[in-house]
């Protein structure tokens, strides 16, 4: 089982003009096996939510709580959160020059499991995951994210999702910048993950396009640092037709 419970989460970042409140009380619960989509206009705080849950030091939690299966996520260090079962697929994955994908994946898997993976099955698992995401076998010898195309970066994130097998995956605009073929490949990867027992997904996106391939259980509309409306998949259809305008303050 895996339940991610976010209650009244408030987050600020420091700016030159002092602290700025980005999240203003976010409450949502991803129950066992559920996929939630968070949609919203640019600047509404979607990515802040993702990075705050993962523990990025830039964001200061000023209120509320986040628990994973009852455990206090906010009290954990970044790596402890990952070992507890959280995974963040980033919008802009970071280059780590000189560290091969193979070395990176093995190091992460060892850290998450607390022991080194069995060599024989591991190589097969890695090659299988890369292959399913249409990344060839030479990919594992390249430096992490260095010189990757936008699509390769996103597919590499989803390959990690398959291999590291977290309880809950947060996908931060994984669909942005992907052409339709890459979007399908990435979506299939996410769907394979969802088929596993009890996996939670928080899918953050600006566009409804990816929801044609990944059907969410719940859709939240995110505006100005909080959830403005929640509903079923039909809410995404409404957004596709009408956009976010009805949620935004009327321009004067």
């Amino acid at each position: 089982m895996s339940t991610l419970e976010i209650t009244d989460l408030a987050v600020s970042v420091s700016t030159e003009d002092g602290p700025k409140q980005i999240l203003k009380g976010v409450t949502l619960t991803i129950d066992d096996g559920q996929t939630h989509a968070i949609m919203g206009p640019n600047g509404s705080g979607k990515s802040t939510l993702a990075y705050s849950i993962a523990g990025h030091p830039k964001y200061e939690i000023t209120g509320g709580s986040v628990t994973l299966d009852g455990e206090d996520v906010l009290a954990m260090s970044v790596d402890e959160r990952a070992r507890a079962g959280l995974f963040l697929a980033m919008q802009y994955p970071v280059e780590v020059p000189g560290v091969s994908v193979a070395n990176f994946l093995r190091t992460a898997k060892t850290a998450i499991d607390g022991e080194a993976p069995k060599l024989r099955t591991w190589v097969k698992d890695v090659n299988g995951a890369l292959d399913r995401l249409n990344l060839d076998s030479t990919f594992s010898q390249r430096s992490v994210n260095e010189g990757f195309s936008g699509g390769e970066k996103k597919r590499h994130e989803i390959a990690q999702l398959e291999l590291l097998d977290p309880k809950v995956a947060i996908l931060d605009e994984t669909d942005s910048g992907l052409d339709i073929d890459a979007l399908k490949i990435v979506s299939e990867g996410v769907n394979r993950f969802r088929e596993r027992e009890g996996k939670g997904v928080l899918l953050i996106t600006h566009y409804t396009r990816i929801l044609r391939y990944i059907t969410p259980d719940v859709v939240h509309v995110f505006v100005d640092g909080k959830v403005a409306e929640s509903g079923g998949p039909e809410l995404a259809d409404k957004l596709e037709a009408e956009g976010y305008e009805s949620y935004l303050p009327v321009a004067r």
Binding site: A54, H56, D79, V96
Partner: peptide, 10 residues
């Protein structure tokens, strides 16, 4: 941060 978010200690 990227490496830590994959479970790797600092």
């Amino acid at each position: 941060f990227y490496l830590q978010s994959r479970g790797v200690s600092v």
